[in-house]
Amino acid sequence: MKTVAQIIQTKQIQQVHTIDADDTVLAALQRMAEHNIGALPVTENGKVVGVISERDYARKCVLQGRSSIGTKVRELMNSPVITVSPGQSVADCLSLITHRHLRHLPVIDNDQLVGLVSIGDLVKETIAEQEELIRQLEQYIRGEV
């Protein structure tokens, strides 16, 4: 099974976009729209302290009648942040996401943000691994190996 580091490499993303905890929710939404992403790690003094997503905006801002202009990211972000390391397996991450009801996991290496994996990334990798296993088993059954 692949590791988080291998997934990050295949994503070919040059930069992980972040937002500061004191920025407005509107700034976070603009950054997500600009980069066509659904969540941002939230930083404070260079450290990841949370995650904010479009889902957080919908549930914690819009549905509560709050303004995206006057609301700070820190008021909506999911915190404390749950992170993973590059060496963790896809299975470990899927278990964490399932049990904690998360959709995004910041990847931290030596106290530095090095990536962000989503539930979609993890499911895509799991499906690819299962398809490869099925292909290998079919070859074995046909005597091609």
Rank of each mutant, 00 (worst) to 15 (best):
V16D: 03
V123E: 00
V73R: 09
G87F: 08
I97K: 05
S118V: 04
K124Y: 05
S68R: 12
A27E: 12
L94T: 08
G115W: 05
P41N: 05
R103Y: 02
V123W: 01
S89T: 15
S79A: 13
K72G: 04
D56A: 04
K2Q: 06
K124G: 09
L105N: 01
Q139K: 15
N78K: 01
K47D: 07
Q15M: 05
L105S: 05
S68V: 11
I141Y: 14
R103I: 01
K124L: 10
V84S: 06
A33R: 14
M32N: 08
V107R: 01
E125Y: 01
V90I: 14
V81E: 07
Q14F: 01
A5D: 10
V107Y: 02
T71S: 12
K72I: 10
D56V: 01
E132R: 13
L116S: 02
V25T: 08
D111K: 12
E125W: 00
Q15I: 11
H35C: 06
S118M: 03
S53I: 05
V48M: 07
N36M: 02
T3A: 04
L116F: 05
Y57W: 13
R31G: 02
Y140C: 03
K60H: 11
E34S: 12
R31P: 00
I19D: 07
G87R: 13
E54I: 04
D92P: 03
Q12M: 11
